[in-house]
Design a protein around this nucleic acid. Structure first.
Lengths: 233, 233
DNA sequence: CCCGGCCTCACCAGAAATGGGGAGTTGGAA
DNA sequence: TTCCAACTCCCCATTTCTGGTGAGGCCGGG
């Protein structure tokens, strides 16, 4: 374990992640291990031992917005066993069947990981075995998996595969206040009143913030400011 | 360590966190350890060994939006040493001085933790010693601290001290699509076009989503949907 | 079988936001 | 000192959003 973490910490190329993940699969003797993230812009990055055909199909079908693992983990903090997720709904059902047909095990344990800039990633272990075996496996390895997930994400963030640095121009104090108040539902007039400035001035802040954030309108600007962690709501 | 984590996992009352944190402070022989979170609604919860006067002053002064530790960690994923944060700016300076006067050590190591619903928490260890000692301490204990931070947050989330469950009414698929597209900067007309529906219909979705989210306007609705993890941007 | 939630469409009038001008002060950095 | 970024204020015209009301088809659960 220490060895793996050390390798992650000094990794300098994404291939290292893939190598580690394959090593881990053998080490734990499970069917699959996958790390994948999806962030703001919608494109994603990941590595793992799933059949490439399944990965391609997943992307092609846009399963990201259907997959109960993603949706469920997105609203959780704890690692979660797939069985505890919501598999009702016909979209989820057909997704599950499709996954099974592509060789994905029916047991799974996923750890959600969150980073700045609205980053969200999953570290998943999947296998085929009965419920009891699976329960004892997850119970035994939970702590290691949490730490692994953390270091995997740390490494992935460091390597930032082709991810543009996005110069995240900082907002001025007034701009931050403006965005924050807009995010909690105030109208322009109310924000102006709260900050004790004219609404005209307020507009200048909104527009400059929008410009700095590269946003197309106010809602977009607020969403970006939130996603990038530039405002604390 | 295992003992501490076990105690966190079976904790049933917030006092357990306080007890554990005090035990940890003695175990590591540091000046202070603090866990605190701040989430959507702005109110916060925490426990730690800081002087209550300092805690009160922190809240009273609204230091949350000035504290470089909070602001800095909010945009990071890795644990961070206080020295690596941005302490320029007069607000930050006077904050630092005020903290020092209230007995806060000048060395610090903070671990950001993120949960669903836009939850953000910090697990901080603070001390007074020279840089080298501090560097070796953090190097040595980093991994334990990450795991501790994780389990602290898990416990805090479980206990949810007085935090309303916020029945998080789920959005319908169309509502999710609508909110998502608005969050990435589309105007109402563009969203309607993208979804191939009339703008009138779109408005119905926005309004029903706004209603479900308890939001005052579109921007607010998008912000809430993001913060609650109901849309993946 | 019926109810309720979801999806779809329509009209209207008023309120709010946007885009693009210009212009002055202050305080900190180069 | 000079310069720039931040902060403040104002006008105009146009586009966009919002609030209220109404209505029909579809599908799944009780």
């Amino acid at each position: 374990m220490d060895d793996v973490i050390a390798r992650l910490e000094c990794a300098e190329h994404p291939d290292a992640l893939q190598a580690v993940i394959e090593w881990l699969r053998d080490y734990y003797s499970v069917d699959d291990i996958v790390y994948h993230w999806v962030s703001s812009n919608g494109d994603q990055y990941g590595c793992g031992t799933y059949d490439p055909k399944w990965v391609a199909r997943y992307l092609e079908k846009g399963y990201l917005r259907i997959d109960p693992v993603v949706i469920g983990c997105y609203q959780r903090f704890h690692p979660v066993d797939w069985k505890r997720l919501d598999w009702s709904g016909k979209a989820a059902r057909s997704f599950m069947q499709d996954a099974a047909e592509h060789g994905v095990g029916h047991q799974g344990y996923s750890i959600p990981i969150r980073g700045p800039n609205g980053q969200f990633a999953l570290f998943t272990v999947s296998h085929s075995c009965d419920d009891e075996q699976w329960a004892s496996f997850t119970e035994l390895n939970r702590r290691d998996l949490i730490l692994l997930a953390h270091y995997f994400n740390q490494t992935a963030l460091k390597l930032e595969p082709g991810r543009k640095p996005e110069p995240t121009q900082p907002l001025s104090p007034r701009e931050v206040e403006t965005m924050t108040l807009l995010a909690v539902g105030y109208s322009r007039a109310q924000v102006a009143e709260t900050l004790a400035i004219s609404e005209h001035t307020l507009r200048v802040y909104i527009e400059s913030a929008r410009f700095k954030l590269g946003a197309l309108n106010t809602t977009h600007a607020v969403a970006r400011a939130m996603a990038r962690g530039q405002i604390i709501v």
